[in-house]
């Protein structure tokens, strides 16, 4: 392996990020809704758990994920019984670990968007006969569009760039768990700086383009604010 961009690793990273962000949007949106609108006295504990990956070294998170997925853990045994192979050092294991790793980057923008909604608009929806579900799909979600978009892009970019967690739970199996950041690390270790540079530059470009696209969209006037 020398001299070029590791397309296999890039494809794997993109696949991982797409899968992870899709799952996180489905799971994170109700979680954000619950954190915002159904606060209990102990909600702050859930918030702390969700935010942990922001401050924890990825290796710490990865280490515990690895233990949780190991062949002797309940999760590892259950997975083995279900699929016939272990969870660690597989793509599925990587997805599971990434879900935790990128959770705050998806949940927080959505929760922030929900919290900024004018509550009387949601109440108006209810007085007009809308069920909570109808209010959620027709009012809450459309008015939180910017938060959902931000969540998707941050979650995608963050999953694309993860390194420590992948190294711990995924290892370095080409086409299975060797993501783009691992590939760059390998290339540098092998003194193939040209290849590392090419791959790194691509990652930089993609990340920049994604963020620029989001900010370009968010800049568009979009009247979410309550009317004075």
């Amino acid at each position: 392996m020398s001299g070029g961009i590791d397309w296999q690793a890039i494809a794997l990273s993109v696949r991982l990020a797409v899968v992870v962000v899709s799952i996180l949007l489905v799971l994170g949106t109700p979680l954000a809704w619950w954190l915002t609108f159904r606060r209990k006295r102990w909600t702050f504990l859930v918030e702390a758990v969700v935010a942990l990956p922001l401050v924890l070294p990825p290796t710490v998170l990865g280490f515990y994920m690895l233990l949780a997925m190991g062949p002797h853990s309940p999760l590892g045994r259950a997975w083995d019984a279900l699929t016939g192979h272990g969870l660690a050092f597989t793509f599925e294991g990587l997805v599971l670990a990434s879900l935790f790793y990128s959770l705050p980057f998806v949940v927080q923008p959505i929760a922030t968007a929900f919290a900024q909604l004018d509550r009387t608009i949601l109440e108006a929806s209810a007085t007009l006969g809308a069920s909570p579900w109808r209010t959620f799909t027709r009012v809450t979600l459309p008015l939180s569009r910017d938060g959902l978009l931000t969540a998707a892009v941050l979650g995608f970019a963050h999953t694309l760039g993860e390194f420590g967690v992948v190294l711990m739970v995924g290892g370095n199996l080409p086409g299975v768990t060797r993501t783009v950041s691992i590939s760059i690390y390998d290339q540098v270790q092998a003194f193939d700086l040209a290849a590392a540079n090419a791959t790194a530059l691509l990652l930089l470009g993609v990340s920049f383009a994604a963020l620029a696209a989001v900010y370009a969209v968010l800049r568009k006037p979009w009247a979410v604010a309550p009317i004075a």
């Binding site: 109440e123 108006a124 007085t127 009012v139 604010a225 309550p226 004075a228």
Partner: peptide
């Protein structure tokens, strides 16, 4: 019950 809010709460979208 029809309710007209002080700040109207029209759906901006």
């Amino acid at each position: 019950i029809g309710y007209v809010f002080q700040h109207l709460a029209l759906f901006p979208h």
